[in-house]
Computed example of a mutant assay.
Amino acid sequence: MAEPVVVGVDGSPSSLEAVGAAAREAALRGTGLRLVHAFGWPSIRPPPGVPPWTPAAAGVRELVDGTLVKAEQRAREVTPHLEITREVTVGEPLMVLEIESRTACLVVVGSRGLGAFGSLLLGSTAVHLAAHGRCPVLVVRGGPNPTGPVLLAVDGSPAGEKAVEFAFAEAAMRNAGLLALHVWNTWSERAYEGPGDPLNVVVDIERLRAAEQQLLDETLSPWQTRYPQVAVERRLVRSRIRTALIDASHDAQLVVAGARGRGGFTGLLLGSVSQALLHHAHCPVAVVRGEE
């Protein structure tokens, strides 16, 4: 069996949505689904003579089993014949998912939940997981358009090459089109427009536009040859990058972005664009780390 799709489970509605999405991803890849439920370490010491804390010893085994049964039922509703395994462990959920990502092809999480898994988009946990996971991370959020394209944020950087590969593969598996969006003038979040803008005064705009178009074409061409069945729309936009991508996500079924593009600080493992998408995109977001 190939590397499984791993999904974090906590019993919340958002978690069950993530299970459904993870089941679909596993079916598309022809691999198994791994349901992972993690308990945080207890804040109190067990009484004398009581063995170290475990789900069974704490009297919550029934609760855990019920949560996992519901999760598995949800997965079966999506893909009845999927191979499903369960993992219940004691540990900090983020660390557990990081470890699971080492032997997974994809980690899927919901945007909100009941426990530590549920704080994903309320704090820095999703950002940390997307930055440090050893495989692509899919955060299930928004209302995806099931007939829409896979939206790829193209920046032309070497670090973004893995995201391009992932987006083409996803589009092929989903029988969907691919919208490759490259936004320029991205070193500032101000949109430079009009003949009086400083950029227009000191730069040959048409030459810059041609260079950005060439970057977009060179990034996509090898992968279009590899995936000829994927219909690709190349879109070059002069705008604020975060605004343009979030707006385009309205009509997409999935957004794919690299963990860090050419516009970010090289010391950061997750760029501001990916963070903005994780918090504000209108459909699920896949963050794909590039080569170290």
Rank of each mutant, 00 (worst) to 15 (best):
T147W: 10
R76D: 11
T147A: 15
K162N: 06
V154N: 07
C105F: 01
V78C: 04
A126T: 02
I99E: 12
M95S: 09
L138D: 04
G133W: 06
V107M: 11
A116V: 13
L121R: 13
A172K: 04
R102C: 09
E77D: 06
E83V: 12
P136I: 02
G142I: 03
R134P: 03
P136H: 02
E83H: 13
I99V: 09
P80I: 05
R112F: 00
T103Y: 12
L106R: 11
F168T: 02
G123V: 00
V139M: 07
R174P: 08
A159G: 12
A169R: 09
A167R: 05
C135I: 08
A167I: 03
E98M: 15
F166V: 01
P146D: 14
F166A: 11
R141N: 11
R102A: 13
S101Y: 11
N145C: 06
E92P: 13
T103H: 14
K162D: 06
E100S: 10
L120C: 08
G148I: 00
R102E: 15
K162V: 01
V90C: 13
V109F: 03
C105W: 03
E170I: 05
P136R: 03
V96T: 15
R174C: 08
R174M: 09
P146L: 15
S124V: 01
L151T: 09
E165H: 14
S111Y: 00
E170V: 07
N175I: 01
A176N: 02
T85W: 14
V139R: 08
P149G: 07
F168D: 04
L106Y: 12
E161D: 05
A169V: 00
R141Y: 10
V154R: 10
E87A: 12
G115D: 02
V96M: 15
L138N: 06
L120V: 07
S124W: 03
P144H: 05
L151F: 12
V164M: 02
A153F: 13
H128A: 06
P80Q: 05
T79Q: 13
R86S: 10
A153G: 15
G156N: 03
T89L: 14
R76M: 11
L138C: 08
V137H: 09
L151N: 10
R86Q: 13
C135W: 13
R102Q: 14
R86M: 02
E83S: 14
T79C: 14
P158K: 14
V137T: 13
T125G: 00
E87V: 07
P149Y: 06
A116T: 15
E77Y: 03
P158H: 12
S124T: 05
A159K: 12
P149L: 04
G156Y: 04
V150D: 11
V108M: 06
R174D: 04
F166H: 14
A104N: 09
V108W: 08
V164E: 00
A172T: 01
P158M: 10
